[in-house]
Write a protein that binds this DNA or RNA. Sequence first.
DNA 1: TATGAATGAGAGTTCATTCAT
DNA 2: AATGAATGAACTCTCATTCAT
Lengths: 198, 198, 198, 198
Amino acid sequence: MADKRIPVQRRSIERKQKILSSGFKLFCEHGYYKTNTIEIAKHAGVSTGAVYSYFKDKREIYIAAFDSYLEEISGRLFEELEQSQTLPLPDFVENWVTVYLELYAASGHALAQLRMMILEDEEINRHFSDLENEYFMKLIRLLNKNGVERADLMERIYTCCILIDALRQEQSSFSHIGLNFLIFKEQVTSTILQLLSG
Amino acid sequence: MADKRIPVQRRSIERKQKILSSGFKLFCEHGYYKTNTIEIAKHAGVSTGAVYSYFKDKREIYIAAFDSYLEEISGRLFEELEQSQTLPLPDFVENWVTVYLELYAASGHALAQLRMMILEDEEINRHFSDLENEYFMKLIRLLNKNGVERADLMERIYTCCILIDALRQEQSSFSHIGLNFLIFKEQVTSTILQLLSG
Amino acid sequence: MADKRIPVQRRSIERKQKILSSGFKLFCEHGYYKTNTIEIAKHAGVSTGAVYSYFKDKREIYIAAFDSYLEEISGRLFEELEQSQTLPLPDFVENWVTVYLELYAASGHALAQLRMMILEDEEINRHFSDLENEYFMKLIRLLNKNGVERADLMERIYTCCILIDALRQEQSSFSHIGLNFLIFKEQVTSTILQLLSG
Amino acid sequence: MADKRIPVQRRSIERKQKILSSGFKLFCEHGYYKTNTIEIAKHAGVSTGAVYSYFKDKREIYIAAFDSYLEEISGRLFEELEQSQTLPLPDFVENWVTVYLELYAASGHALAQLRMMILEDEEINRHFSDLENEYFMKLIRLLNKNGVERADLMERIYTCCILIDALRQEQSSFSHIGLNFLIFKEQVTSTILQLLSG
DNA sequence: TATGAATGAGAGTTCATTCAT
DNA sequence: AATGAATGAACTCTCATTCAT
């Protein structure tokens, strides 16, 4: 019914940001279902009512929080990648892996959480599928400029992304016993290089 | 008297199995939080009380359901793999990918769900981390027998598993627009082959 | 999703009845919006959960409570009226008014509440409009048997019902200063008689 | 300074009026409980704070809105009736019914809502009972001047009012299936005539 | 031993009212 | 004086778990 307030004042914007970051933090730590709106409000230092004046419902907080986070991080990633797009491919890949690991290090459980929510919730699925597609497209354009052009590039890039994120998970949260991170990283890097140049 | 005990026990085991399979099915379809115990009981054709006489709580149903499922499927996987352990590596890998895709096809969202639950719940984490480790160890032993022996085998196998499961997800639930499954499969297979033989 | 439990045991039926009568009482006393489900549960001596195992939502309690009340009362009214359907019209009318006043005396605010809810809620409207129509039809059939047959009988009966219910309101809840009930009753009775025989 | 106060006051009066008319409109359309103060403020083009500087609480808006509406409408009704007070009774009654229907047509659910609120809220009850009494008294005085004088006039007038309002409800919101409005109107008019002259 | 009705804490959400700006 | 963002109690409804039968 009522259109949600568009924050025009600084305080408002800050509060909305605080709700988003609190939501993001708690969703990552405890998951969507174990985080309740009162907690989010408390953590953001606002009332429950305030939360609902900025967001339609809990799901909207979730979407906005992850959207904003991914926007931010992938924005920074592409900034870096664009600067190194003319490097020789091995250096470009090295850089890609390194920057990705740095930037997404803080994601913690965020991406795994998101993957799960995408499976459970149609609306969230639609929203983030589009976002992911954009992400792939940008990567393709970037690699094209670097001289990498193949019919099956989409599939190759997808494989690369899977591997890089496996690396990130290993680094941050999900470390497997008996798995040496540096060796793993070395393997991932060289596999990516082969995929893109082989 | 004594001869009646066995049928009762058998019935009991069957019921427990039915609860597990019902739970697994519903958890996969709707996720842990959107599946309630009454539904599980109804689907299994038992009373809610019965469910709680076999399992301490909902989480225990979840753990046991996934445990039993993974046990079953990975058992079958290794049966197949052991039969093809003497094949030339390219055929072995081909077989591995094919059988994995077949067996885990029915998992649907199950494994993604599980990954999420592992992040949210300490107890679930402990349980399935051990299971996964066992799984890797068996694969190592198998590949050793096939003649693949390297210092960094653990990491290589891990990468292979990541890629195969990405393939499975692509096949069952998570298809990305513009991604050709057959090309992707081809790439995964040859990447694995390179990782193991290169 | 889940179909609501159909009470098969006596205790269940009694509880459902208790919830209905508690709901009816509280809805009449304080109105729909000032009555909350916790109050209804408490008054019925059950938990909030129990209320929702018998009824889908608060509105369903409201509909069922009023439905059951009107069923009961109008059932009794028509029993009486059928017994006096062969009396001379003046006696029949006299009887109608008297019995109606007796039976609906306890309605208190019930009917006024209902009228309001009908205006606010589409579903409640549909439900009770049908019920009211049946009521009119029964009255028409009854008067037909008594020899009252006219083209505009529907309208006349409607007018009669309005007047009788005004009388009931005056008697029970809504007494106006300076209005003599007996005189008012006398007038209503003779007006009805004229409408039906004039 | 002093000459500015009057425009300010005028603006203030206009705003209060706007709040009242907005409140009335929304209360009629959605009912008291489904209308919120923010909506009223928005519709009136003022801030929520402003609403609370003119009225103590939501209930007071309700009372004032209906008070003002009824004042206005009944004022107009009596103006018309006074002009026709010397007509022969049949014409006077005809006029009464016609004018009432015209004037109160816009009430929609308003009066039914009000009746409900009177039952639920002691303060609203007190306020409008007095108003209604005044209304009856005026009608009595008017009919006295027309030559209608009887001991039981109060009761007769009350009956007339009930019938006329039933007619209005039928016309505006509450139409019953199978009920012909023109026939119903004819009956009401002639019944009123009989009540007042018979 | 098995049942499933019952529990009640806790979830998401709304909105009359206030008060810092 | 005027604003409208903020409050937080209160609402409806759910569901993991228990326990009388």
